[in-house]
Design a protein around this nucleic acid. Structure first.
Length: 504
RNA sequence: GCCCCCAUCGUCUAGAGGCCUAGGACACCGGCUUUUCACGCCGGCGACAGGGGUUCGAAUCCCCUUGGGGGUGCCA
C-alpha cells in the first residue's frame, strides 16, 4: 500500500483582519475545509494583515471565534501554530524583503517612483485610448542604485514586477482554462512604499513557503491569477491548482456588502445578516448555516439537501462546484434552521441555545442564567421554532418579573377589550377557580379551562387567549396549560390580578 | 471604455444529445390540523433569456445578441 505523503493536499483560507467573517468568506472556508477533510489534507489559516490602514482592532479574534462556532477548525495557523509559521503576514516581512531583493537583483523587478497624480494621468490616458494597460514601463527601467538613492532621499518608492510579454493560461478546476493575452498584463506593485508587500506578492510567497497545493478562492481573484503565475515563474516557484468560486449576492441581486448593512442601519431598517456573527446573534444554528451555504454553488447531484459537516466532507468534490453566481435566500436558510433545530439531539440544541443566550443582547437576564432543566423545558415547549430568537420571543415572559409584563396594545384590544371587555370578564371568572385549584399540572389546568368553556358556553380560544395575554403580555406563547403550569400558581395569579387592575 | 466569467421555475439547484410532456428544495397559492405563534400533512402554480446553426434528434455542442457578474488600486 502506498501512503500519500502527509502534505499532498494543503489548502488555506487567508482573510485580512478588517472585521467579522463575511458569510461569503465562510463558504470559501467551508469548501477549503471540506476538500482537506475529504482527502486527509491540511487546512491552514493565514492572516493577511499587510494593510495597516484597513486593520480593524480585534478582528482576528472575531474571525477565529466565528470559525470555531462553525466548527471549521484549522490544522495550522494562529493559536495552533505549525511548521510553516508564522501565520501572520505582518510577522513575515523579512521573508518578503528577501524575495523582493532577489527579483530586483535578477532584473525581474524594478523600483518605480511615479506619484499618485502621474499614475492617475496614465490611467486616464489608457482609457481614452481604449487600452487595458495603463502603467507604462519606463525604458530603461531605473537601476537598483537609483531606487535606493531615491528612497534615501525620502521619495515614495515602490517595487514593480516586470510582467513578461506572453499569454498566461490559468488552469482552473471549476472554470476550465482561462487565458489572458500578453497585451493585458502590466507591471504591478509588489512592495508598497511603506515597505509592506502587496497582497499578490505576500500571497504567492506564502503559498509557496507554506506548500499550498490547491487554491480555492472567490471569483473576484480570477484576474489576479495571471499576476500570481508570473510571480511564481519569476521566483522559480511551483503553481498550485486553482479553483475560483462563484460569488454570493443578496436576494435582490445586490452585493452582500458591509456597506449595505451600514445603509440599512442608517435608514432605520433592520440590518441584513451578512457576517457569520450576524447569524449567530440572530439565533441560527451553525449546522443550518453550514448546510445552507454548502448548497450555494455546490450540489450533490441527487435530491439530498440535508447534510452534516461529515456528510458534506464525504460528498464534496470540486467537480460538482458550479460556475454561476448565487443569491442568498434567507427564507430557505430559515427553513433549514427549522429543520435542523427539530432533528438535532436535544443536548446539542440546548448547548447551542445557551451559547446564543450569551451572545445576544435581547433575552431577559434571568433567562440567561436559568438552569439547564428549565431551558430544556422551554425548548421542548417551543418545539417547531425557527430560530432561537423566536424561542426568546415566545417564552421570555416566563423569566420576567411580574411587574415587567406589559400587555401589548394590539393584544389588549383584540383579546381583552373586544366585546365589551369579554376577555376581562373571563379572567375575573377564571381567577377564583385558579386560586382554588388543587392540581397545578398542565393536564389539570387544561381540564379547568375546558370546564370554564362549558360553563360559559364559549370556545376554548375565548378562554385561553385572555389568559395567555394576561400572563405573557402577548398573544404568542407556548401551549397555555404548560405555560401556566410552568409559571406557577403564585405568578399566574399575580399577573391576572395586575391585568384585571388595568381594566378601564 | 477595455479584459474575463456566467446564463434551467421568484430563489438554490438536478440535468454532461434521445431516460425531459425538465426532477427536488425554499417561497408562493389552496386545503387539512389548530386555544396563539410556529410545526406538521395533502394538493396546486411555476423555468430551459432571444436568434441562428450542427444533428435523425438539443436544456444539453458551436456562433451571435441580450442580460447579469468580476477585474481594471501602493485593498485584499
Amino acid at each position: 500500500m502506498t501512503a500519500e505523503p502527509a502534505d499532498f493536499l494543503r489548502v488555506r483560507f487567508a482573510p485580512s483582519p478588517t472585521g467579522y467573517l463575511h458569510i461569503g468568506g465562510a463558504r470559501t472556508v467551508l469548501f477549503n475545509w471540506l476538500l482537506a477533510r475529504k482527502h486527509g489534507g491540511t487546512f491552514i489559516l493565514r492572516i493577511e494583515d499587510t494593510d495597516q490602514a484597513r486593520h480593524v482592532e480585534d478582528s482576528v479574534g472575531k474571525i477565529l471565534d466565528d470559525l470555531r462556532w462553525l466548527g471549521l477548525l484549522w490544522d495550522e495557523g494562529p493559536e495552533v501554530g505549525g511548521s510553516y509559521g508564522p501565520y501572520f503576514q505582518s510577522q513575515r516581512l523579512a521573508t518578503y524583503e528577501n524575495h523582493a531583493r532577489q527579483l530586483l537583483e535578477t532584473g525581474q523587478a524594478y523600483y518605480s517612483f511615479e506619484t499618485p497624480e502621474e499614475l492617475a494621468a496614465m490611467r486616464e490616458k489608457a482609457r481614452a485610448q481604449k487600452r487595458v494597460r495603463s502603467y507604462v514601463r519606463p525604458e530603461p527601467v531605473p537601476a537598483v542604485e537609483q531606487g535606493l538613492a531615491a528612497k534615501a532621499a525620502g521619495r515614495s518608492v515602490v517595487v514593480r514586477l516586470k510582467m513578461p510579454y506572453e499569454d498566461i493560461a490559468v488552469v482552473d478546476d471549476i472554470l476550465g482554462t482561462v487565458t489572458v493575452a500578453a497585451e493585458q498584463h502590466e507591471d504591478f506593485v509588489i512592495v508598497k512604499s511603506d515597505g509592506f508587500p502587496t497582497y499578490h506578492f505576500a500571497c504567492v510567497v506564502d503559498d509557496e513557503l507554506m506548500k499550498i497545493t490547491h487554491v480555492l478562492r472567490g471569483q473576484e481573484h480570477l484576474m489576479n491569477t495571471p499576476k500570481h503565475i508570473a510571480l511564481q515563474r519569476a521566483l522559480g516557484f511551483s503553481t498550485p491548482r486553482y479553483a475560483h468560486l462563484p460569488v454570493i449576492f443578496n436576494i435582490d441581486g445586490s452585493k452582500m456588502s458591509k456597506r449595505d448593512k451600514e445603509k440599512a442601519i442608517k435608514s432605520g431598517l433592520p440590518p441584513p445578516e451578512i457576517d457569520v456573527h450576524d447569524f449567530r446573534v440572530a439565533g441560527y444554528l451553525p449546522e443550518a448555516v453550514l448546510n445552507f451555504i454548502a448548497l450555494l454553488g455546490w450540489a450533490p447531484g441527487d435530491d439530498r439537501e440535508q447534510f452534516t459537516l461529515e456528510e458534506l466532507a464525504a460528498a464534496f468534490t470540486i467537480e460538482r462546484v458550479g460556475r454561476t453566481n448565487a443569491r442568498f435566500d434567507r427564507e430557505k436558510l430559515l427553513s433549514f434552521n427549522t429543520t435542523w433545530a427539530a432533528k438535532l439531539a436535544p443536548d446539542r440544541v440546548l448547548a447551542a441555545f445557551k451559547a446564543f443566550l450569551t451572545c445576544t443582547t435581547n433575552p431577559p437576564p434571568k433567562m440567561r442564567h436559568a438552569d439547564d432543566d428549565m431551558l430544556a423545558c422551554v425548548l421542548r415547549l417551543c418545539a417547531g421554532f425557527r430560530t432561537f430568537a423566536d424561542v426568546v420571543k415566545k417564552s421570555g415572559f416566563l423569566f420576567a418579573a411580574d411587574a415587567d409584563v406589559v400587555v401589548d396594545e394590539q393584544a389588549r384590544r383584540k383579546v381583552l377589550d373586544k366585546n365589551e371587555c369579554a376577555g376581562f370578564d373571563i379572567l375575573a371568572f377564571l381567577l377564583p377557580r385558579l386560586e382554588a385549584a388543587t392540581d397545578w399540572s398542565a393536564a389539570a389546568l387544561e381540564a379547568l379551562l375546558q370546564a370554564a368553556c362549558e360553563e360559559k358556553q364559549v370556545k376554548i380560544g375565548a378562554v385561553a387567549q385572555p389568559l395567555r395575554v394576561a400572563v405573557s403580555g402577548s398573544t404568542i406563547s407556548p401551549g397555555i396549560g404548560q405555560t401556566v403550569a410552568l409559571l406557577g400558581r403564585e405568578r399566574t395569579i399575580a399577573r391576572i390580578r395586575r391585568c384585571l387592575a388595568s381594566r378601564v
